[in-house]
Simulated scan of single mutants.
Amino acid sequence: MIQRALLDTRRAVRNALRHAALPGTAALSGTAALSGTADPSGTAEPPGGVRPGVAAPAPRPLVLVALSGGADSLALAAAVAHEAPRLGLSAGAVIVDHGLQRDAAAVAGTAADLARGLGLAPVRLVGVRVTDDGDGPEAAARAARYDALARTAEAERAAAILTAHTRDDQAEQVLLGLARGSGSRSLAGIPPARELAPGVAILRPFLAADPAITRAVTEAACAEQGLAFWRDPHNADPAYARARVRTRVLPVLERELGPGVAAALARSADLAREDAEAFDVMVEEQIEEIVEPAEAGIAVSAAALAANPAALRHRIIRRVAEAEFGIGLGREHTLAIAALVTAWRGQGPLHVPGILVTRDRGRIVFTGAPGARSGMEE
Protein backbone atom coordinates (compact mmCIF):
# COMPACT_ATOMS: atom_id res chain seq x y z
CA MET A 1 0.00 0.00 0.00
CA ILE A 2 1.32 3.47 -0.90
CA GLN A 3 2.10 5.48 2.22
CA ARG A 4 0.88 8.75 0.74
CA ALA A 5 1.04 10.87 3.89
CA LEU A 6 4.56 9.66 4.70
CA LEU A 7 5.76 10.45 1.17
CA ASP A 8 4.14 13.89 1.21
CA THR A 9 5.78 14.88 4.50
CA ARG A 10 9.15 13.78 3.16
CA ARG A 11 8.66 15.70 -0.07
CA ALA A 12 7.72 18.84 1.85
CA VAL A 13 10.89 18.58 3.95
CA ARG A 14 13.07 17.84 0.93
CA ASN A 15 11.72 20.88 -0.93
CA ALA A 16 12.19 23.18 2.05
CA LEU A 17 15.75 22.13 2.72
CA ARG A 18 16.76 22.41 -0.92
CA HIS A 19 15.15 25.82 -1.42
CA ALA A 20 16.63 27.19 1.80
CA ALA A 21 20.09 27.19 0.17
CA LEU A 22 21.73 25.94 3.35
CA PRO A 23 25.34 24.79 3.06
CA GLY A 24 25.49 21.16 1.95
CA THR A 25 22.00 21.00 0.46
CA ALA A 26 22.96 20.78 -3.21
CA ALA A 27 20.70 18.34 -5.04
CA LEU A 28 22.27 14.91 -5.39
CA SER A 29 22.05 12.80 -8.50
CA GLY A 30 22.63 9.24 -9.60
CA THR A 31 22.50 6.03 -7.61
CA ALA A 32 24.15 7.60 -4.57
CA ALA A 33 21.21 9.96 -4.15
CA LEU A 34 18.75 7.11 -4.51
CA SER A 35 20.52 4.96 -1.97
CA GLY A 36 21.22 7.79 0.43
CA THR A 37 24.93 6.87 0.61
CA ALA A 38 26.37 9.90 -1.14
CA ASP A 39 29.51 11.43 0.28
CA PRO A 40 28.85 15.18 0.68
CA SER A 41 32.51 15.86 -0.16
CA GLY A 42 31.88 14.47 -3.65
CA THR A 43 34.51 11.73 -3.38
CA ALA A 44 34.26 8.13 -2.32
CA GLU A 45 36.06 7.38 0.92
CA PRO A 46 38.52 4.49 0.69
CA PRO A 47 38.43 1.62 3.16
CA GLY A 48 40.00 2.57 6.44
CA GLY A 49 39.34 6.29 6.25
CA VAL A 50 40.42 9.38 4.36
CA ARG A 51 43.02 9.13 1.59
CA PRO A 52 46.56 10.12 2.62
CA GLY A 53 47.18 13.76 1.87
CA VAL A 54 43.48 14.53 1.38
CA ALA A 55 41.80 16.76 3.92
CA ALA A 56 38.86 15.28 5.79
CA PRO A 57 35.49 16.54 4.54
CA ALA A 58 33.95 19.37 6.52
CA PRO A 59 31.35 18.36 9.11
CA ARG A 60 27.84 18.16 7.75
CA PRO A 61 25.74 21.24 8.49
CA LEU A 62 23.27 20.58 11.29
CA VAL A 63 19.52 21.19 11.27
CA LEU A 64 17.38 20.79 14.38
CA VAL A 65 13.71 19.83 14.57
CA ALA A 66 11.60 21.56 17.21
CA LEU A 67 9.86 18.50 18.64
CA SER A 68 6.96 18.46 21.09
CA GLY A 69 5.88 14.86 20.58
CA GLY A 70 2.61 15.85 18.89
CA ALA A 71 1.64 14.46 15.50
CA ASP A 72 2.82 17.49 13.53
CA SER A 73 6.32 17.70 14.98
CA LEU A 74 6.75 13.93 15.16
CA ALA A 75 5.88 13.55 11.47
CA LEU A 76 8.34 16.37 10.74
CA ALA A 77 11.07 14.73 12.81
CA ALA A 78 10.64 11.43 10.99
CA ALA A 79 10.74 13.15 7.59
CA VAL A 80 13.83 15.17 8.49
CA ALA A 81 15.59 12.07 9.83
CA HIS A 82 15.00 10.43 6.45
CA GLU A 83 15.74 13.37 4.13
CA ALA A 84 18.55 15.32 5.80
CA PRO A 85 21.33 12.73 5.27
CA ARG A 86 20.36 12.48 1.60
CA LEU A 87 21.01 16.21 1.27
CA GLY A 88 24.36 16.16 3.06
CA LEU A 89 22.99 17.36 6.39
CA SER A 90 23.06 16.16 9.97
CA ALA A 91 19.75 16.24 11.81
CA GLY A 92 18.99 16.57 15.50
CA ALA A 93 16.12 17.67 17.70
CA VAL A 94 15.40 20.16 20.44
CA ILE A 95 12.55 19.61 22.89
CA VAL A 96 11.39 22.62 24.90
CA ASP A 97 9.79 21.82 28.27
CA HIS A 98 7.57 24.79 29.15
CA GLY A 99 6.68 23.29 32.54
CA LEU A 100 3.06 24.38 32.11
CA GLN A 101 1.47 20.97 32.65
CA ARG A 102 1.81 18.45 35.43
CA ASP A 103 3.28 15.77 33.18
CA ALA A 104 5.37 18.17 31.07
CA ALA A 105 8.70 16.60 32.04
CA ALA A 106 7.47 13.09 31.18
CA VAL A 107 6.09 14.26 27.83
CA ALA A 108 9.38 15.96 27.00
CA GLY A 109 11.34 12.86 27.98
CA THR A 110 9.18 10.66 25.77
CA ALA A 111 9.67 13.06 22.86
CA ALA A 112 13.44 12.90 23.36
CA ASP A 113 13.32 9.09 23.31
CA LEU A 114 11.30 9.17 20.08
CA ALA A 115 13.85 11.52 18.51
CA ARG A 116 16.71 9.19 19.39
CA GLY A 117 14.72 6.26 18.05
CA LEU A 118 14.43 8.05 14.72
CA GLY A 119 18.21 8.41 14.61
CA LEU A 120 18.32 12.14 15.31
CA ALA A 121 21.42 13.45 17.04
CA PRO A 122 22.07 15.55 18.97
CA VAL A 123 18.84 15.57 20.97
CA ARG A 124 18.60 18.49 23.39
CA LEU A 125 15.94 18.87 26.07
CA VAL A 126 15.66 22.48 27.26
CA GLY A 127 13.55 23.67 30.18
CA VAL A 128 12.19 27.21 30.14
CA ARG A 129 10.37 29.46 32.55
CA VAL A 130 7.27 31.07 31.07
CA THR A 131 6.55 34.55 32.42
CA ASP A 132 3.47 36.41 31.24
CA ASP A 133 4.38 40.09 30.85
CA GLY A 134 0.85 41.08 29.97
CA ASP A 135 0.54 39.80 26.42
CA GLY A 136 -1.16 36.58 27.50
CA PRO A 137 -0.01 33.01 28.19
CA GLU A 138 0.19 32.02 24.52
CA ALA A 139 2.53 34.88 23.67
CA ALA A 140 4.62 34.25 26.78
CA ALA A 141 5.06 30.55 26.00
CA ARG A 142 5.89 31.33 22.38
CA ALA A 143 8.51 33.92 23.37
CA ALA A 144 10.14 31.51 25.82
CA ARG A 145 10.10 28.71 23.25
CA TYR A 146 11.71 30.71 20.45
CA ASP A 147 14.32 32.12 22.79
CA ALA A 148 15.23 28.55 23.80
CA LEU A 149 15.32 27.43 20.16
CA ALA A 150 17.61 30.32 19.21
CA ARG A 151 19.97 29.68 22.13
CA THR A 152 20.14 25.97 21.36
CA ALA A 153 20.75 26.56 17.66
CA GLU A 154 23.60 28.93 18.45
CA ALA A 155 25.10 26.56 21.02
CA GLU A 156 24.96 23.64 18.57
CA ARG A 157 26.02 25.79 15.60
CA ALA A 158 22.92 24.65 13.74
CA ALA A 159 22.18 26.13 10.33
CA ALA A 160 18.41 25.95 10.82
CA ILE A 161 15.57 25.08 13.15
CA LEU A 162 12.56 23.36 11.57
CA THR A 163 9.09 23.75 13.07
CA ALA A 164 5.95 21.78 12.19
CA HIS A 165 3.34 24.46 11.50
CA THR A 166 0.80 23.06 9.03
CA ARG A 167 -1.72 24.53 6.61
CA ASP A 168 -4.30 24.28 9.39
CA ASP A 169 -2.13 26.46 11.63
CA GLN A 170 -1.88 28.93 8.78
CA ALA A 171 -5.67 29.10 8.43
CA GLU A 172 -6.01 29.76 12.17
CA GLN A 173 -3.37 32.49 11.98
CA VAL A 174 -5.26 34.26 9.18
CA LEU A 175 -8.45 34.28 11.25
CA LEU A 176 -6.59 35.65 14.26
CA GLY A 177 -5.05 38.35 12.05
CA LEU A 178 -8.47 39.27 10.70
CA ALA A 179 -9.81 39.59 14.24
CA ARG A 180 -6.99 41.98 15.13
CA GLY A 181 -7.48 44.07 11.99
CA SER A 182 -3.71 44.14 11.58
CA GLY A 183 -3.31 44.47 7.82
CA SER A 184 -2.04 42.42 4.92
CA ARG A 185 1.30 41.57 6.50
CA SER A 186 -0.51 39.83 9.34
CA LEU A 187 -2.95 38.20 6.91
CA ALA A 188 0.07 36.71 5.17
CA GLY A 189 0.19 34.45 8.20
CA ILE A 190 3.15 32.49 9.43
CA PRO A 191 6.21 32.93 7.18
CA PRO A 192 7.58 29.68 5.71
CA ALA A 193 11.11 30.86 6.49
CA ARG A 194 12.77 33.67 8.39
CA GLU A 195 15.91 34.44 10.35
CA LEU A 196 15.76 33.12 13.89
CA ALA A 197 19.17 34.40 14.95
CA PRO A 198 22.26 35.59 13.06
CA GLY A 199 23.25 32.74 10.76
CA VAL A 200 20.30 30.57 11.84
CA ALA A 201 17.18 30.13 9.71
CA ILE A 202 13.82 28.93 10.89
CA LEU A 203 12.09 26.74 8.30
CA ARG A 204 8.49 25.55 8.25
CA PRO A 205 8.24 22.88 5.54
CA PHE A 206 4.59 22.00 6.18
CA LEU A 207 3.34 25.50 5.27
CA ALA A 208 3.99 24.98 1.58
CA ALA A 209 0.98 24.76 -0.72
CA ASP A 210 2.29 21.66 -2.50
CA PRO A 211 2.15 19.17 -0.98
CA ALA A 212 -0.55 20.53 1.32
CA ILE A 213 0.26 19.21 4.79
CA THR A 214 -2.61 19.37 7.28
CA ARG A 215 -3.04 17.80 10.71
CA ALA A 216 -4.88 14.93 9.08
CA VAL A 217 -1.80 14.31 6.94
CA THR A 218 0.64 14.42 9.86
CA GLU A 219 -1.51 12.05 11.90
CA ALA A 220 -1.72 9.69 8.94
CA ALA A 221 2.05 9.90 8.44
CA CYS A 222 2.60 8.93 12.07
CA ALA A 223 0.16 6.03 11.74
CA GLU A 224 1.90 4.79 8.59
CA GLN A 225 5.17 4.65 10.52
CA GLY A 226 3.76 3.23 13.74
CA LEU A 227 4.66 6.38 15.70
CA ALA A 228 2.53 7.09 18.77
CA PHE A 229 2.05 10.82 19.23
CA TRP A 230 1.01 13.01 22.14
CA ARG A 231 -2.18 15.08 22.15
CA ASP A 232 -1.58 18.41 23.88
CA PRO A 233 -4.62 19.25 26.05
CA HIS A 234 -3.88 22.96 25.58
CA ASN A 235 -4.90 22.59 21.94
CA ALA A 236 -8.50 22.12 23.09
CA ASP A 237 -8.44 24.49 26.06
CA PRO A 238 -10.88 27.38 25.46
CA ALA A 239 -8.71 29.63 27.60
CA TYR A 240 -6.47 30.01 24.55
CA ALA A 241 -7.59 32.06 21.54
CA ARG A 242 -6.01 29.71 19.02
CA ALA A 243 -7.75 26.74 20.61
CA ARG A 244 -11.10 28.53 20.33
CA VAL A 245 -10.45 29.23 16.66
CA ARG A 246 -9.51 25.59 16.12
CA THR A 247 -12.33 23.91 18.01
CA ARG A 248 -15.16 26.43 17.68
CA VAL A 249 -14.73 29.06 14.96
CA LEU A 250 -13.38 26.99 12.07
CA PRO A 251 -15.90 24.15 12.57
CA VAL A 252 -18.74 26.69 12.44
CA LEU A 253 -17.36 28.22 9.24
CA GLU A 254 -16.96 24.80 7.66
CA ARG A 255 -20.49 23.86 8.65
CA GLU A 256 -22.13 27.10 7.50
CA LEU A 257 -20.02 27.88 4.42
CA GLY A 258 -19.10 24.40 3.31
CA PRO A 259 -15.93 22.33 3.47
CA GLY A 260 -12.62 23.79 2.38
CA VAL A 261 -12.66 27.00 4.44
CA ALA A 262 -9.36 26.20 6.16
CA ALA A 263 -7.69 25.44 2.83
CA ALA A 264 -9.05 28.68 1.34
CA LEU A 265 -7.73 30.71 4.28
CA ALA A 266 -4.30 29.15 3.87
CA ARG A 267 -4.37 30.02 0.16
CA SER A 268 -5.30 33.58 1.08
CA ALA A 269 -2.19 33.71 3.24
CA ASP A 270 -0.09 32.58 0.25
CA LEU A 271 -1.51 35.40 -1.87
CA ALA A 272 -1.16 38.02 0.86
CA ARG A 273 2.45 36.98 1.45
CA GLU A 274 3.27 37.37 -2.25
CA ASP A 275 1.77 40.87 -2.22
CA ALA A 276 3.55 41.79 1.02
CA GLU A 277 6.91 40.62 -0.32
CA ALA A 278 6.43 42.65 -3.50
CA PHE A 279 5.53 45.72 -1.45
CA ASP A 280 8.60 45.21 0.73
CA VAL A 281 10.85 45.34 -2.34
CA MET A 282 9.12 48.48 -3.61
CA VAL A 283 9.36 50.15 -0.20
CA GLU A 284 13.09 49.47 0.09
CA GLU A 285 13.67 50.85 -3.40
CA GLN A 286 11.68 53.99 -2.56
CA ILE A 287 13.43 54.52 0.76
CA GLU A 288 16.83 54.51 -0.90
CA GLU A 289 15.70 57.39 -3.11
CA ILE A 290 13.60 59.60 -0.83
CA VAL A 291 15.08 59.27 2.67
CA GLU A 292 17.93 61.43 3.92
CA PRO A 293 19.62 62.01 7.28
CA ALA A 294 18.32 64.83 9.47
CA GLU A 295 19.54 66.31 12.70
CA ALA A 296 18.89 63.71 15.43
CA GLY A 297 16.79 61.66 13.08
CA ILE A 298 15.75 61.04 9.50
CA ALA A 299 13.72 62.90 6.88
CA VAL A 300 11.50 61.83 4.00
CA SER A 301 10.46 63.96 1.04
CA ALA A 302 6.81 64.97 1.48
CA ALA A 303 6.37 65.33 -2.28
CA ALA A 304 7.70 61.83 -2.89
CA LEU A 305 5.38 60.41 -0.24
CA ALA A 306 2.44 62.26 -1.76
CA ALA A 307 3.23 60.84 -5.20
CA ASN A 308 2.85 57.28 -3.94
CA PRO A 309 -0.45 55.46 -3.49
CA ALA A 310 -1.63 55.17 0.10
CA ALA A 311 -0.54 51.53 0.45
CA LEU A 312 3.08 52.39 -0.36
CA ARG A 313 3.04 55.69 1.53
CA HIS A 314 1.87 54.04 4.73
CA ARG A 315 4.37 51.22 4.39
CA ILE A 316 7.23 53.68 3.93
CA ILE A 317 6.19 55.56 7.06
CA ARG A 318 5.99 52.35 9.10
CA ARG A 319 9.29 51.11 7.70
CA VAL A 320 11.10 54.33 8.60
CA ALA A 321 9.76 54.20 12.15
CA GLU A 322 10.74 50.57 12.56
CA ALA A 323 14.17 50.74 10.95
CA GLU A 324 15.31 54.00 12.54
CA PHE A 325 13.66 53.86 15.96
CA GLY A 326 12.54 50.27 16.48
CA ILE A 327 8.93 51.44 16.76
CA GLY A 328 6.02 49.47 15.33
CA LEU A 329 3.40 52.04 14.38
CA GLY A 330 -0.28 51.20 14.58
CA ARG A 331 -2.84 52.22 12.00
CA GLU A 332 -3.95 55.42 13.74
CA HIS A 333 -0.41 56.71 14.18
CA THR A 334 0.46 55.87 10.57
CA LEU A 335 -2.58 57.79 9.29
CA ALA A 336 -1.79 60.76 11.52
CA ILE A 337 1.74 60.98 10.09
CA ALA A 338 0.41 60.54 6.56
CA ALA A 339 -1.90 63.52 7.17
CA LEU A 340 1.20 65.71 7.38
CA VAL A 341 1.63 64.80 3.70
CA THR A 342 -1.93 64.62 2.35
CA ALA A 343 -3.78 67.08 4.59
CA TRP A 344 -1.11 69.61 5.45
CA ARG A 345 -2.59 72.78 6.94
CA GLY A 346 0.38 74.00 8.93
CA GLN A 347 -0.32 71.75 11.91
CA GLY A 348 2.39 71.49 14.54
CA PRO A 349 4.60 68.60 15.68
CA LEU A 350 3.01 65.20 16.05
CA HIS A 351 3.91 62.96 18.97
CA VAL A 352 3.67 59.20 18.53
CA PRO A 353 5.20 56.65 20.92
CA GLY A 354 8.95 57.25 20.96
CA ILE A 355 8.99 59.56 17.91
CA LEU A 356 8.43 63.26 17.23
CA VAL A 357 7.28 63.90 13.65
CA THR A 358 7.26 67.34 12.03
CA ARG A 359 6.88 68.80 8.56
CA ASP A 360 9.74 71.13 7.76
CA ARG A 361 10.65 72.66 4.37
CA GLY A 362 8.91 70.00 2.35
CA ARG A 363 10.22 67.11 4.42
CA ILE A 364 8.63 64.83 7.00
CA VAL A 365 11.21 64.73 9.79
CA PHE A 366 11.31 61.87 12.33
CA THR A 367 13.33 62.40 15.52
CA GLY A 368 13.61 60.29 18.62
CA ALA A 369 11.43 61.39 21.52
CA PRO A 370 11.56 58.78 24.30
CA GLY A 371 8.38 58.83 26.32
CA ALA A 372 6.46 60.93 23.80
CA ARG A 373 2.78 60.09 23.71
CA SER A 374 -0.29 61.30 21.86
CA GLY A 375 -4.01 61.15 22.37
CA MET A 376 -4.08 58.32 19.83
CA GLU A 377 -2.30 55.88 22.10
CA GLU A 378 -3.60 52.34 21.39
Rank of each mutant, 00 (worst) to 15 (best):
I95G: 10
R185L: 12
A78D: 11
V217W: 05
I317R: 02
R142K: 15
E378P: 12
A91C: 06
A81K: 03
R185M: 00
A338H: 09
R194L: 15
P46Q: 10
G92L: 08
L125V: 14
S73Q: 05
R315L: 12
D72I: 00
R242V: 11
V291P: 00
F229E: 01
A12M: 05
L176D: 02
G53V: 06
A56S: 13
P52D: 12
E224L: 06
H165K: 03
E224K: 04
A212W: 13
G36H: 01
L257C: 14
V245A: 13
G53K: 11
A239V: 12
L340K: 15
N15H: 12
D147N: 09
P211H: 09
M282I: 04
S268E: 02
H351W: 09
V283K: 03
T334L: 10
P46S: 13
A338S: 15
A139V: 15
A26R: 11
G371D: 05
R345F: 03
L271K: 04
P192C: 01
T25L: 02
A105H: 14
G330W: 02
Q3D: 15
L175P: 01
G42A: 01
S186T: 14
L118C: 08
R167T: 01
T214A: 03
A343V: 01
G92Q: 09
G330F: 07
A79G: 12
Q3W: 09
A220Y: 09
L87E: 01
S374D: 12
A307H: 02
L265V: 13
E254C: 13
L203K: 07
R331K: 12
A26N: 12
E295I: 06
H234V: 12
A209V: 11
P85D: 04
A66C: 05
V13H: 08
L176R: 03
R157K: 07
E284F: 01
V341M: 02
T166Q: 04
A78S: 13
G119H: 10
A323R: 15
V200S: 09
R359G: 09
